[in-house]
Design a protein around this nucleic acid. Structure first.
Lengths: 195, 195
DNA sequence: GTCCTCCTGGCAGTTAATGCCAAGTAGGCG
DNA sequence: CGCCTACTTGGCATTAACTGCCAGGAGGAC
C-alpha cells in the first residue's frame, strides 16, 4: 500500500536526477542553477529542495545507500578474515553495485573536477568511516605492543578509503580503461609493501 | 616602502580573525553571520570579503601557507631518505609551526564539528596532496614489479594525509592531552605493520 | 460525497558572495 | 603646501542557495 505516492516520487526523483546530471555534464556544476534544473525537470524549485536537501545531494545523494551496503557487507565477512580483507571484500561489492560503468565514470569525473562536490563527497564518506570503525575494531586481534585498537581501526579504515579514493581518481583520469579493483590493490600494495 | 598599508592590513586581518574565532567559539559557526563579524570588528562587510574570500577562509585561511611549508620541507629532505620519512619530517615541521596548542585545538575542534568547515578543510588538503605527488614520485625507486610510480606516489600521499587527519581527530577528541606526533606514528604503524 | 492526510507550489525572507561606483587616504612630486 | 596618481574602502544592487509559511490540490478511508 501507499504505493502511488512512492512510485511517482521515484519517477520524479529519477527525472530530476537525469536532468541534473545532463545539465552538469553539458555546462558544468557551478554554472547550472537550481532554477534551471527545476524548470527543465518540470517541477517547482521548492519541491526540488524537498527531494534533495542541497544542490550537492543531486550528485552525492545515493552515497548513503552505498555506505550502508558497505557496512553490511564488511560485517558479514567470516570472523577469521582480516580487517584488510574484509574491507577489500566490501569495496568489491560496492563497486559492482554502483551504476552502469558509464554513469559511474561520468559522476566520478564530475566529482573529482568540482572542488565543492569533491569536498562534499568526502564529507559523506567520512560518516561511513565513522560507522565502520567499530566494525573493524571488533575484527582486530589485540596483539601486544600494538596501538590502542581504536586508533588502529581508525587508521586502517582511513587508509582503505584513501586508497579507494585514489584508485577511483586514477580510474576516472584514465577514462575507465583500467580495472578499478586492480588499481585499488596497487594502491594498497604501494602502502603496505607488496600486500 | 608600501608599509603603512601592509601594516594596517595585518592589524585588520588579525582583528577580524580574533573576532571571528571568538564568535564562532561562543555561538557556533553556522549561527554567526558575516554581518555580525564585520560589525564587531568595525569594518564593512564588503571589505571583510576582500580580506577573506569566503566565510570558511576565516578558519581555514592560513592552511595555504602550511601547505607550502609542507611541500618545501619535504623537498628539502636528503635524497636518500624514503618517501615515508620525508613526509613524516614535513608533517613534524608543520606541527610545530602551527599556532599555540590552545589555538590549534580550538580550530581543530571547530573544523571537525562543523561539516561545511570540515569539507572546506579537506578541499584544501586535497590541493596539497596534488602538489606533493610529483615531489614524492621523484623520491621513489623504480623497483621491479611495482605499480606505476604515479599510482604509488598518489597512494602514499593519500595514506599519509589520511593518517595525519585521523591523528588530529583523535588528538582533538582527547582535548590535546596526547602527543600528536605519537598518534601519527601509531596510525602509520597500524597501517604499515609496526612501522 | 466527505473528511483526513500528505504533497505541491508560490512567495517572502535570510545568508553568503560578487560587481560596480563614488568617496577617502597614503605617498610621490612640483 | 597643493596636486595627482594608486590603491583602498564602503555602500548599493544583484545573484544563488536555501528555509519557513500558507493556501490549494491530489490520494485514500469511510
Amino acid at each position: 500500500m501507499t504505493t502511488l505516492w512512492e512510485r511517482s516520487r521515484q519517477v520524479a526523483v529519477q527525472a530530476i536526477l537525469d536532468t541534473a546530471v545532463r545539465l552538469f555534464a553539458e555546462q558544468g556544476y557551478e554554472q547550472t542553477t537550481i532554477a534551471q534544473i527545476a524548470r527543465e525537470a518540470g517541477i517547482s524549485q521548492r519541491s526540488l529542495f524537498r527531494y534533495f536537501g542541497t544542490k550537492e545531494d543531486l550528485v552525492c545523494g545515493d552515497q548513503e545507500a552505498l555506505g550502508n551496503l558497505l557496512k553490511r557487507t564488511v560485517e558479514q565477512q567470516p570472523a577469521e578474515m582480516s580487517a584488510w580483507d574484509a574491507l577489500r571484500a566490501g569495496f568489491e561489492v560496492v563497486l559492482t553495485a554502483n551504476h552502469t560503468p558509464e554513469r559511474a565514470l561520468e559522476l566520478s569525473r564530475l566529482i573529482f573536477d568540482t572542488p565543492s562536490l569533491r569536498a562534499r563527497y568526502i564529507e559523506k564518506r567520512l560518516s561511513w568511516q565513522a560507522e565502520l570503525v567499530p566494525v573493524i575494531r571488533a575484527r582486530l586481534g589485540n596483539g601486544p605492543g600494538r596501538p590502542a585498537p581504536d586508533t588502529q581501526a581508525r587508521a586502517i579504515v582511513a587508509t582503505v578509503f584513501a586508497c579507494a579514493d585514489t584508485a577511483t581518481e586514477l580510474w576516472a583520469g584514465h577514462d575507465g580503461r583500467l580495472d578499478l579493483a586492480d588499481l585499488y590493490d596497487q594502491c594498497l600494495g604501494a602502502v603496505r609493501g607488496q600486500g
